[in-house]
Amino acid sequence: MQGIIRTFILRLIGLPFTMLLLSVCVFVVLRLLPSDPLSMMIPPTATAADVENIRTALGFNRPIPVQYLTWLQAALHGDLGQSIALKAGVSQLALNALPATVELALTALVLSIAISLPLAVLYFRARAWRAIALSLDVLFDFMMSVPAFLWAIALILIFGVFFNLLPTAGRYGSEFTAPGPTGLVLLDFLVHADWPGLRDAMSHLVLPASALALGFTPLVVRVIRGALIEVDTAPFAETARQRGYSESRVIWRHLLPNAAPATIAIIGTQFGFLLGATVLVESLFSLPGLGNLMVQAVKNNDLPLVQGLAIVFCAFTLVINVLADVALVIFNPKARTQ
């Protein structure tokens, strides 16, 4: 227990310094881009003096270090700036969009793990059959090579257009109203026992979550399989077999629990890539999340919004990494002594 608490505290201590470094990188990189975020605010009839007045009012005429310190002071008080295109606070926009992204990413993660476990066991046991193992290698290579947005397009065409089985836009149908207050519509419908709304929200989430999970699953499968191979010759596995346990019981009751640390580690390190894939997937499925909002911000050259959303994405990923580290210590006794 002490090791778990110590790991959690150490990761929390390092979190602000990591966020500070990330904010510097994001701020500087965006300021060095050749695009001008003020272009959409300046009317065609504006004079050079008008342009300079707007630039001065927004602080874009000051040195980058001064701009950053001004922004950082406001950010520490929860103010990430003002969206140029949407005329609203970036913090509130991000807060409103965050639940949709959290729900999509976590659902995709759970779905990926649920698919990966039986596939990893099949992949592990297929070592004795070279043809099956080779076929699975080709299948997983193919799945990993297809980006999430292509999976999304394929799923929309197959299940939304050709067969018309599942909805392809929004988080729930227009006949429903999310009861709140969390913004996580599955949880909100569940808490309020709105079963038709819950079923409808789940049907809307199937395709976008599957698009993300299909690209993430092969990586998890291969990590679990590698961990299974590593613990397969451990003394506890040999003891279980000597007691007459079936191979399936040995794998599911003894090998898989010991493969958990490797799985948790890869989920923590790769979750950022899964989160990044939500950008185009949310846009394709018209989900009102951070990814869709980021696409709009980039289209509109909305620098404050792009900057604020990038910081939120980074913070979300870091929090998941901290939780993964703590979970790794919980499931891996060796990590508690390191």
Rank of each mutant, 00 (worst) to 15 (best):
L69I: 13
D141S: 15
P63R: 05
L119I: 11
R130D: 04
K87F: 13
A85R: 15
A128C: 07
L72S: 09
D141Q: 14
I132A: 12
V121Y: 07
V121W: 06
Y68C: 03
I113N: 01
A114F: 14
G81R: 10
A105E: 00
V121A: 13
Q92L: 11
W129K: 13
I113M: 05
R130K: 15
L86Q: 14
A94L: 03
S135Y: 02
L80W: 08
L119Y: 07
A120L: 01
Q82I: 02
F140K: 02
D141G: 12
A131S: 11
S135F: 12
K87C: 01
Q92Y: 09
A120N: 02
F124R: 03
L93N: 05
L80G: 03
N96S: 12
V102W: 10
Q82S: 11
L95E: 11
P118V: 00
L139Q: 00
L93F: 02
H77N: 12
A126E: 07
Q67T: 01
V90E: 02
T101L: 05
L117Q: 04
T101D: 04
L76N: 07
A100N: 02
V90A: 10
L109T: 15
S112G: 05
R127T: 06
V66I: 11
R130S: 14
L69H: 09
A88E: 14
A88W: 07
V90Q: 08
R130C: 01
L72W: 11
L93V: 02
A94G: 10
L86T: 13
A128H: 11
Q73E: 07
